[in-house]
Design a protein around this nucleic acid. Structure first.
Lengths: 241, 241
DNA sequence: GAGTGGTCTAGACCACTTG
DNA sequence: AAGTGGTCTAGACCACTCC
């Protein structure tokens, strides 16, 4: 049933197993998962241990609890957590449908910064992707994405449709790697030639730069991403705890 | 011992009581608080209930746990949570000492936006403060801060030294109101005359605008704040969950 | 009323830190 | 060895939802 490191606490093993089942599609978005009592007998632990596991999944936004009704898989659109740029325009209400287009995907030698952020060894290789996020044909964001080739190597040969529109669900589904949290760093700068070209704006335009390190439950970095978007139409919303 | 709403779960009453004790100075920053077993007998509840209360204080960053040593009041500098703008400069390492200067403090009629964000009634009054955050004489941030006059009225007559350098600890100490989380929204715009003047920059400079709604445990908004800083030296770091 | 999640108990045993 | 927080148990009872 569980093949995780037995040195980890049971509630963490169970948390990861439930997350993996959801990623494998055993429980689908919007559906109710097994009840606490069922899970308790499935895993052979007390109900309190199950609750502890679910607590973390709920705070990760993977599962939603409804008192008296059950526990439900959240639609995996990440709208409340790790995708929340560009509510766009003054209306402020409409949420973006995250169309994305991967421009390139290749094995590459990581810079020292990328090596540090992904915690790669001196010999490790990396995967580099350039991706555009668009809405209604308009380019909103240009992203440079770095992954460890050791962890995500097969991504180079996968059908591109398996990587759209969102990458984090793809990491879960195909590699069992769950992004639990991320560190982000925002600055404002002027666009260089590559960024300006992809954003369809003049070089030297004012752009927002977002660096994001995506991290799993074990505190290991999964992805390093640098995104750029035009400053004058940029909105960034976040809940700070 | 506890005078909170008895309809609330015990662990929430205990959480708030412990937080209030810390705010009153019964346990000081860096000190160990009572052990779980002691708290359990103080409050007359099982140790699991104490743990539940402490869980929330720990995730709020009020208390830090150390396995085998005890539980400690975190230094209340908010450096890891709600004050983390402007790590400033390319060094990226030095953290800012948050000098602050309150320029004005008065009763004012809130706009509809402020009324909405503070959830004020149509007749309620508000307090408006303008504050500068500086480092080494240089102005980094210009803040416009709004509070409910009903909740924070006495702040108008307090010695200004009681409100520096940080406001959130002052809210805790003098009003027992704890900021549990905040919603922030960042945009980039050009400075108007007031902002440019306070930031000692030409009007029309590119500035970052941060709107922040600070919220307590009961999900009630405590403060609405709009901050501006020069875009070219702005760094914003956040942990996203 | 049956079934669900939410709170709370009163322990047990383990892992870590300090003397 | 003593004391601390961390994990886990096997229940009890409550609050909410749905039939």
């Amino acid at each position: 049933m569980i093949k995780a490191d037995p040195r980890l606490p049971r509630y963490q093993q169970i948390r990861d197993d439930i997350a993996a089942r959801i990623a494998r599609g055993e429980w689908k978005a919007g559906e109710a998962i097994a009840t606490e009592a069922e899970l308790s007998s499935i895993y052979g632990v007390a109900i309190g241990t199950i609750r502890r596991a679910i607590d973390e999944l709920a705070s990760d936004g993977v599962i939603e609890r409804a008192h008296g009704r059950g526990m439900f898989v959240r639609r995996a659109d990440f709208s409340t957590s790790l995708f929340r740029f560009f509510r766009l325009g003054s209306s402020g209400e409409r949420s973006i449908s995250p169309d994305s287009r991967i421009l390139s995907r290749s094995l590459a030698t990581p810079s020292d910064i990328v090596r540090d952020r992904l915690r790669l060894g001196p010999e490790d290789n990396a995967i580099r992707m350039i991706r555009l996020r668009t809405d209604g044909g308009k380019v909103l964001l240009r992203e440079e994405i770095w992954l460890s080739a050791t962890l995500f190597g097969p991504i180079l040969d996968m059908d591109i449709a398996m990587l759209t529109p969102l990458l984090y669900p793809a990491y879960e589904r195909h590699f069992g790697r769950i992004v639990a949290r991320a560190k982000e760093r925002l600055t404002v700068e002027t666009a260089d030639a590559n960024v300006a070209c992809d954003l369809e704006a003049p070089a030297g335009s004012s752009v927002v730069r977002i660096e994001r390190q995506a991290i799993d439950h074990a505190d290991h970095p999964l992805e390093w991403r640098t995104s750029h978007g035009l400053a004058d139409q940029f909105v960034y919303e976040v809940d700070v705890h």
